[in-house]
Amino acid sequence: MFEPPYTRTRAANERLRAHECDACGWVSFPEQPQFCKRCGVDASWSETRLHPRGTVRSYVVQQRLPEEFETPLPLAVMDMPQEESGEPARVYGLFTETDPADIEIGMEAEGVFRRVFDVAGLPIHSFKFTRPRGDRL
């Protein structure tokens, strides 16, 4: 029942599946790539999984959005490590259930599975971030 773009990225959205470049170690997420975005090689890729706890590299707090969005809406650039070894993936992360005043650069944030939005009335699920439990200020 997913529209095609969401079907193609379902494993990434729902299981944090990613791909690591065998030539340079760069991690592609959520796309399943062919040419590497960093080294430019027509590379071979190893499937990997991201760990749902990442690190905030920068963030903003959006106050003015269309009415279907909750505000204030914190948004971060996150580095998400792989489950095993290797480089992290650098991705955008929306926050949820977090006081904007509790977000800071360098903090860890936990990916939690949430409904992100609806397409034609059908819910699309993916990860949002929260300040981890037991890590309150």
Partner: peptide
């Protein structure tokens, strides 16, 4: 691209540029 998952998820123009401001100040 407010409706994309992961890539560009919920990112407005002020957010894209504001992310540089937060980091530059830090």
């Amino acid at each position: 691209a407010l409706d994309q998952v992961w890539r560009g998820r919920g990112v407005t123009m002020p957010a894209f540029f504001g992310l540089r401001a937060t980091r530059h100040m830090e």
